[in-house]
Amino acid sequence: MPSETEKSTSTPSDDLDEARIDERDQEESDGIILPSHVAGSGTLDRLVDTARDYARAAASDNTLKAYAKDWGHFTRWCRIKGAEPLPPSPEMIGLYLADLASGSRPSSALSVATIDRRLSGLAWNYAQRGFSLDRKNRHIATVLAGIKRKHARPPVQKAPILAEDILAMVATLPFDLRGLRDRAILLLGYAGGLRRSEIVSLDVHKDDTPESGGWIEIFENGALLTLNAKTGWREVEIGRGSKDQTCPVHALQQWLHFAKIDFGPVFVGTSRDGKRALDKRLNDKHVARLIKRTVLDAGIRSDLPEKERLDLFSGHSLRAGLASSAEVDERYVQKQLGHASAEMTRRYQRRRDRFRVNLTQAAGL
């Protein structure tokens, strides 16, 4: 980001030029145009727009927003340094990465994971503009390797919400309409090992809404969720619990019944008095806020200061909690979470497998 001095010296003309450049970048990022030798027509122009819509759907909205911010930050950096972002220059990108890691900019140094993600964002943006970014180029690869060697830290993982935690959290919720909804969100998210975006994207039926990320089917023995997730379509089976108070399927049915929801988004907002369900789908940030609030209300990790407790838990704590608490064969956990590899699943199993295999004793000590 530009410094305060740089911001204060900008003129309306500069701002207008930057807006025009950003607009041009957006047009270029669409990437799909008619060949130069083909004459345009109403039909072809509509097909171009359709193709662009499909191209944008290749990545999630959150990913596209992050990549757009990455590109915006890099292009501003280039303009401040008197360079052009196009075509890609490995030398300049190497300097950009060094700047991000060194903390020489007005803002603080970025983590290795964030720098790596920024580089992925640049590679994606260049591809959309018809360029190829060679991450193995020595100007990029050696700088990034040095950054990782010098600044890498162990990954900071969110704490899992374990079985006793989720029971304590749902116990803090009232039995009004809003409480029924939030109880269903927590129990369904925990039992399904769902991402927060997957929870709020659910519809009652298939094709209820254009923005749907999946739908639900309720059977005698449980609920089947069909999800359009990061790794593609997958089915998640959620069996009924041992008692109604903590059964995710029962909680879901209670919410749908009392909220009178039989079409469209499963999880929606409620009126101020909490007595009526609204039409608008919940934002995934609601899930994160709900988890943090109920963690505090339930007194989980009360040995820590409040800020540390809030930092310790997030939406991913539900997925990590299922992976850590479910004492079943690892392959079933992997399938439920929708992971492509067992190694990814093991990253979520925060405490389950610790010291289960004792190589010290196996080695004769």
Rank of each mutant, 00 (worst) to 15 (best):
A66Q: 11
A66L: 09
A66P: 06
Y67T: 03
Y67M: 01
A68V: 10
K69R: 10
K69T: 09
K69S: 10
D70G: 05
D70Q: 06
D70L: 04
D70W: 06
W71S: 04
G72T: 09
G72Y: 03
G72Q: 06
H73S: 12
H73R: 13
F74V: 06
T75A: 11
R76P: 07
R76Y: 08
R76H: 13
W77Q: 06
C78T: 05
C78N: 02
C78M: 04
I80G: 05
I80K: 09
I80S: 12
I80D: 10
K81N: 15
K81C: 10
G82Y: 12
G82Q: 08
A83P: 03
A83T: 15
A83M: 13
A83F: 11
E84Q: 14
P85T: 10
L86R: 09
P87F: 07
P87G: 09
P87C: 10
S89T: 01
S89I: 00
S89D: 02
S89V: 00
P90T: 04
M92Q: 14
M92Y: 11
G94Q: 07
G94W: 05
L95P: 05
L95C: 11
L95D: 13
L95M: 12
Y96C: 03
Y96W: 14
L97C: 05
A98F: 05
A98W: 03
A98S: 14
D99N: 10
L100V: 12
L100S: 07
A101R: 08
A101H: 10
A101D: 05
S102T: 08
S102K: 02
G103N: 11
S104C: 09
S104F: 09
R105V: 07
P106F: 09
P106Q: 06
P106I: 10
S107D: 13
S107H: 14
S108L: 12
S108I: 11
S108P: 08
S108A: 15
A109P: 04
A109S: 15
A109G: 10
L110F: 15
L110S: 15
S111M: 05
S111T: 15
S111Y: 12
A113I: 10
A113L: 07
T114G: 05
I115G: 01
I115M: 03
D116S: 12
D116Y: 06
D116L: 02
D116V: 07
D116C: 03
R117C: 01
R117L: 02
R117I: 05
R118M: 11
L119T: 05
L119Q: 03
G121P: 04
A123E: 01
A123R: 01
A123L: 00
A123G: 01
W124M: 06
W124S: 10
W124A: 08
W124I: 07
W124K: 09
W124G: 01
N125Q: 14
N125T: 12
Y126N: 02
A127T: 13
A127I: 03
A127F: 02
Q128L: 15
Q128N: 15
Q128Y: 05
Q128E: 13
Q128T: 11
R129H: 09
R129S: 11
R129N: 09
G130W: 04
G130T: 08
G130Q: 03
F131L: 04
F131H: 15
S132V: 11
L133E: 01
D134C: 00
N137V: 00
N137M: 00
H139Q: 13
